[in-house]
Design a protein around this nucleic acid. Structure first.
Lengths: 135, 135
DNA sequence: TCATACTGTAATAAAATATGTTACAAATTT
DNA sequence: AAATTTGTAACATATTTTATTACAGTATGA
């Protein structure tokens, strides 16, 4: 299910790309997104775990892109933010005694899986640089 | 954002397709989905508004498919359940004084719009009959 | 070396959304 | 008339998302 994480992460990365020489603080970034700085830091933690950005603690610290924006695709960001098109139905526990109920989740998952593949294929063709250069 | 409505509606329609000669009660359908009958009736109300099903009140009442399952596409169901891949970020109000914040929603919307087109194109090729015949 | 300004992270709270329940009028069948 | 079902509103609960507070740890530079 697509949540705000994808949008937030793209926003963060776009800013980092626009200021390639600076360590941007979570407060500055949060000011652009209009979001709580702690949430920004959480997304940055995720980006760090994937070695997409590096950050520096302490005074004048902040975060900086650690990869080539031309080589980072939106597909990677999509996957990195744990996004999938999914059941979106938290408590999907159909009746196993019903021939339809018994199998529907499998068929829905197959369907969603194909949807994800289509979306991924599209996002693979767009780099962070492409996205950022629209601005 | 994809929610349970899409899954629930497909489930309902698959059942209706499997029992083309019966008026199925919301209770029966709810039993297969393992969902509250009122929620089933709500989705059916939506289907009725789109003339996809017809229902009969009163004793032995219920709901029945009103269209040819071969001609009803999952794309129609997708749209009918108000599904879109969207921002998923309820309070996305970036800072208008920031060059990135000012424009990001437009660019994200364009991106999501393309994603929806890909998904729609895929779902257009799958009929309810196709889906139901997998079972 | 000390004040300052950051990150990192946990704990908690609030808000938004999704799902579930109860209740009952209206409709139709037997 | 009794039984069963839809239709719908009003309300309740659960889940997920977003926000806040708090503070330890780290680097900078005056």
């Amino acid at each position: 299910m697509i949540s705000g994480k994808f949008a937030i992460t793209i926003h963060i990365l776009t800013l980092l790309h626009k200021f390639p020489n600076d360590y941007l603080s979570s407060e500055f970034i949060a000011g652009s997104i209009n979001l709580n700085p702690v949430l920004v830091r959480k997304e940055i933690a995720n980006l760090k775990a994937h070695h997409i950005v590096e950050s520096k603690e302490g005074k004048n610290g902040g975060t900086k892109l650690a990869v080539n924006a031309a080589e980072l695709t939106l597909k990677q960001i999509f996957e990195m933010t744990f996004e999938t098109i999914g059941l979106g139905f938290a408590k999907n526990q159909p009746n196993p005694d019903c021939p339809v109920g018994k199998n529907i989740n499998q068929h829905l998952e197959n369907l969603y899986s194909e949807m994800n593949q289509k979306v991924s294929a599209q996002l693979e063709g767009i780099s962070l640089e492409d996205f950022s250069n629209q601005f």
